[in-house]
């Protein structure tokens, strides 16, 4: 049954979500600073034995097709890039949240992680292929976290899919966010933002989570990043990786053209690269770490 939440209840649900592991949380902090370098990442990973082991296992997995085994963590991290390290740490520490079945969206377990990973890859491609002056690694991290609010409100949306779809089919001005808000009192961007604050995520990531469906409302200094994730999110859904009932049922913010320059050709090339990159990454790391 659909159940309305008030602010206090939402807060309670958010507070019941486990914290990120210290490594994941610190990795996010470090990598969102503009002036960090890879050494900071390496030093941090070194302090976490199980993360080190995971990173080495992944870099040597078949997906990366290396001829010689990499045994040093420095080389593994510089080979994979910091975004992959953040992905591994977040997946390992909040895997349950990402892997859970979103029954409120009629979306199978694992769909959210795949959607987030596609969004992360696409957001990074958007940055590199458009040449916009923001960190492509940060765009990846932001993409990974953008929809985390769905796993918070999904249980409350249980049984609402037909109503939600009908609501936005009969009134074309509405999108899925409006449906969520009407049904449970909060949409997934708001729920995700509350979790971002509980997790003490850096401000730019919290802004992405809160405004990824309407970047125009984000703070000017973070707006280009929010647009990159916004486009990445839409590209993920267009590629067939949504999270069930809400897929493609959002508005594209037309103002993106003032921040990010992509035409049809670039978009096609981005979509193709997302498919190629996703195939490689999906098999190498999953939130559940199922091959362990």
């Amino acid at each position: 049954m659909v159940k309305q939440l008030n602010q206090e209840e939402l807060q309670k649900v958010v507070n019941s979500v486990p914290m990120l592991s210290p490594s994941a949380s610190q990795l996010i902090q470090i990598t969102s600073q503009a002036d960090h370098d890879l050494m900071d990442v390496i030093d941090l990973v070194r302090t976490d034995a199980s993360l080190t082991a995971r990173v080495l296992k992944i870099v040597n997995s078949a997906a990366f097709g290396l001829i010689n085994t990499i045994t040093s963590i420095d080389r593994a991290i510089s080979y994979l890039g910091e975004r992959i390290i953040v992905g591994i740490a977040v997946g390992d520490s909040a895997g349950k949240l990402f892997e859970k079945e979103l029954s409120g969206y009629e979306s199978a377990g694992g769909d959210l992680w795949k959607h987030d990973l596609r969004t992360a890859i696409a957001a990074r491609e958007v940055v590199t292929q458009s040449g916009v002056d923001i960190s492509s690694e940060l765009a990846f991290t932001a993409g990974l976290l953008h929809d985390i609010g769905k796993s918070i409100i999904s249980d409350y949306l249980h049984g609402s899919v037909t109503d939600a779809v009908e609501m936005i089919t009969t009134d074309e001005d509405l999108d899925y966010l409006d449906a969520e808000e009407k049904l449970v009192g909060f949409d997934h961007t708001r729920a995700g933002y509350e979790l971002a604050r509980a997790w003490k995520l850096p401000e730019e990531l919290a802004e992405v989570i809160l405004h990824h469906h309407e970047p125009i409302n984000a703070k000017e200094e973070y707006r280009a990043l929010v647009y990159a994730v916004h486009l990445g999110d839409n590209i993920a859904m267009m590629g067939g990786f949504g999270t069930g009932s809400d897929s493609m049922r959002y508005k594209l913010d037309p103002e993106y053209t003032h921040y990010i320059n992509i035409g049809p050709k670039t978009l096609a090339s981005i979509m193709l690269n997302v498919d190629i990159e996703f195939e490689k990454l999906e098999s190498s790391f999953t939130g559940s770490g199922d091959e362990n």
Partner: peptide, 16 residues
């Protein structure tokens, strides 16, 4: 060939 709700043409890959 679905399209996101978009007022300009670039993202209409479904249509193309």
């Amino acid at each position: 060939g679905a399209n996101v709700m978009d007022s300009n043409d670039t993202f209409q890959i479904g249509k193309r």
